[in-house]
Nucleic acid binder design. Structure first.
Length: 638
RNA sequence: GCUGGUGUGGCUCAAUGGCAGAGCAGCUCAUUCGUAAUGAGCAGGUUGAUGGUUCGAUUCCGUUCACCAGCUCCA
């Protein structure tokens, strides 16, 4: 008999060799039905894994991330099996579970058509119906290579070959006639994959390297219940409705034209939003002790050579020749910022020196990478460079993170922090790297924040913290970043005079909060689904006369509001019915609609309709000003 | 940049190897209306661009540009 420790420390005894699934069954048929995988002594395993000694066991369902992965991963095997049945010559590459489901890459002569995807789905349904058990077995690596080579599976053979020398066993899973190289875990049988859908098919390079052959990737998503699949598909529909490219057009915020691919035009409404955002940005930065500068957009080659960009970033830079001298449009603000620092001598008393810059940068991104406001070729970084001593580093990082917290919370955005450590092609002293990386980690640890480590993903000049913001649908976008730089101060020979009257080299932080103004506007457009809070809304209130004779009263109201600081209002002067004007204001997601008819014009009142709530009654103009002003001041989200 | 898909008035979308059509928006007129669409009329297009096939191309073919999905890259 063995002792199995379950959730909440409950210990039960079982015969040796009992499987994790058997234990789940003994705990209840419902749990077993919902189970996808198991966690044995902290390691994820199959429900079919036998327990041979005392252990801790938890049953993972679809609610658990690991359970979900096991589930989706099994679905990818079902997909691969179906493709092999229909197209025996297709070569298999890889098929992992991803956040939104799973995919599988195939080497086939031509892309799959939508009709073929339907046929594959049908075949998958058959495989699900067959409820084939997934059985794990092992092979020595050299045997596995031979096995795949004999079947013509060159990609699989290549994968196994990398392990061939290590002498480790290669694990396989078998479901019916289909055998697949896989670490697992999987659900016990294909019958579990109750609801799935193949969502798209696109090209993808083998191993993500554009030098390699392009394979065909089929994406899908799978759930234990049909209702969950429906919910998922509904959520995707909802995300499409919130797409900032669609909303940007509908709400008149921005446009991107053929004449400037990747170069967005901001329209009057978008500009109101943008300027409000920038006003707020300046207010916060003043509060946190920043000064602001502006550096030129075009600078000569000598500068870019000194910064290193001319050699390391030239592919992405727009360059030109003027008076026989090479110039480049800045892809980054830092070199200009270095020159500003160098333009005058500095004392240790100046440090930390926090220098902000809303800098418009241009980068020639690949055409296929462009995506609305999320990925553009010119954007405004809400940059700042902080010059400091090594001793000040930790407190400065904390100060920046505090600022980030304040800004993000105003928008109701939560974030995840990634720490990126030293890359292979780094520059500088390892001791400095270690110190800087440790300082970044301890700073956020001391602030009680969690983070994940992105090993080797730092910039060549220093480690960094990346802030990934989640929108309300759970998708994440990198916006904020805090990068330590030990190199630029060196390259530009930055100095300050210490208390000892000697010259010292400062260390530097590059940081952006919003990331780029453009991307951030895209993120909050989707986050709010275009229904911006009053403080941010391009039009805060739409004033609607019931009949033409009320127009003067409407303009008087507009003026009265303006005098109280409510400046972003519009009067709808068209000779239309109230319902018509309301509908349009509602579709434009304007926070307040102010109706003025005979009664209001006479009494000096206003009938207020609030977005999302409807008619909230008639009030005096002063009462409305008080209401809306409080909401603006608190930056309330509704 | 790569693979595949798409491109028709400001917007959303029809149609066709033989005169390119609707709804919304716009303009004009009538209506002056109380919380999500009043009615009538008018105007709006070299069907992304460019070569070719054809008596005739928006439709078929080539090239090119842009966009969409994904890969790569990234704020």
């Amino acid at each position: 008999m063995i002792k199995v420790t379950l959730k909440d420390g409950i210990v039960k005894e079982f015969e040796q060799g009992v499987t994790a699934g058997d234990v789940a069954k003994s705990l209840g048929a419902g749990l077993y039905k919902a189970a996808c995988a198991a966690q044995i002594n902290g390691a994820v395993a199959d429900l079919r894994t036998p327990l041979n000694e005392d252990c801790e066991l938890s049953v993972l369902t679809f609610d658990d991330e690991n359970g979900q992965r096991a589930f989706n991963h099994t679905a990818s095997h079902v997909l691969a099996q179906a493709v092999k049945r229909l197209y025996p010559d297709a070569k298999l590459a890889i098929g992992p579970a991803i956040d939104s489901g799973f995919y599988y890459d195939f080497d086939v002569p031509a892309p799959f058509t939508p009709e073929q995807l339907e046929e594959i789905e049908e075949e998958m349904k058959k495989i699900v119906k067959e409820a084939l058990p997934l059985e794990r077995y092992e092979m020595d690596a050299p045997d596995a290579v031979e096995f795949f080579k004999s079947k013509g599976e060159i990609y699989k053979a290549e994968l196994v070959e990398e392990h061939a020398s290590s002498g480790e066993k290669i694990s396989f899973y078998r479901q019916g006639e289909f055998e697949e190289l896989c670490a697992g875990p999987h659900v016990p049988d294909t019958g579990r994959i109750k609801a799935f859908k193949l969502t798209s098919c696109t090209g993808a390079y083998w191993r993500g390297d554009e030098k390699n052959k392009m394979l065909q990737r089929i994406y899908g998503t799978a759930f234990p219940k049909a209702s969950q699949l429906e919910e998922h598909l509904a959520r995707i529909e909802e995300a499409k409705k919130r797409d900032h490219r669609k909303l940007g057009k509908e709400l008149g915020l921005f446009t991107i034209m053929d004449e400037g691919p990747g170069f967005p035009f901001f329209l009057p409404k978008g500009m109101l939003l943008r300027n409000t955002l920038i006003d707020y940005w300046r207010e916060v930065h003043r509060k946190y002790g920043y000064v602001e500068i502006s550096s030129p957009m075009i600078l000569n080659r000598a500068l870019w050579e000194r910064s290193g960009h001319w050699y390391h970033y030239k592919e992405n830079m727009y360059t030109t020749v003027i008076d026989e001298t090479d110039f480049a449009i800045k892809p980054m603000n830092c070199p200009g910022g270095m020159l500003v620092y160098k333009s005058q001598p500095h004392s240790y008393r100046d440090l930390p020196l926090r220098v902000g810059e809303l800098g418009l940068v241009h980068r020639h991104e690949l055409s296929g990478a462009l995506h609305g406001l999320f990925r553009v070729r010119c954007f405004t970084q809400d940059d700042a460079h902080i010059f400091m001593t090594w001793e000040q580093m930790k407190d400065e990082i904390k100060n920046v993170v505090k600022l980030f917290d304040e800004v993000y919370s105003v928008f109701g955005l939560s974030y995840q922090i990634e720490v990126s450590t030293m890359p292979e092609d780094h520059m500088g002293d390892i001791k400095d790297w270690d110190f800087a990386t440790e300082t970044l980690k301890t700073a956020i640890e001391e602030m009680g924040k969690e983070y994940v480590i992105n090993e080797g993903d730092g910039a060549f000049y220093g480690p960094k913290l990346d802030f990934h913001l989640s929108d309300c649908l759970g998708r994440t976008w990198q916006c904020g970043t805090i990068q330590l730089d030990m190199q630029l101060p060196e390259r530009f020979e930055l100095e300050y005079i210490g208390a000892d009257n000697e010259k010292h080299r400062p260390v530097m932080i590059h940081r952006v909060v919003l990331g780029s103004i453009e991307r951030f506007i895209g993120v909050i457009t989707e986050h709010f689904a275009g229904a911006f809070p009053v403080w941010l809304a391009p039009v805060q209130a739409k004033i609607l006369p019931i009949a033409d004779r009320h127009q003067d009263a409407c303009f008087a109201l507009q003026k009265a509001l303006e005098e109280k600081g409510i400046i972003r209002t519009e009067v709808d002067t068209r000779s239309e019915k109230l319902g018509y004007k309301l509908r349009e204001a509602q579709l434009q997601k304007i926070p307040y609609m102010l109706v003025v008819g005979d009664k209001e014009a006479e009494e000096g009142t206003v009938s207020v309709r609030k977005r999302g709530q409807g008619d909230i009654g008639t009030m005096t103009v002063d009462e409305f000003v008080k209401l809306i002003s409080a909401e603006i001041a608190s930056k309330e989200i509704f």
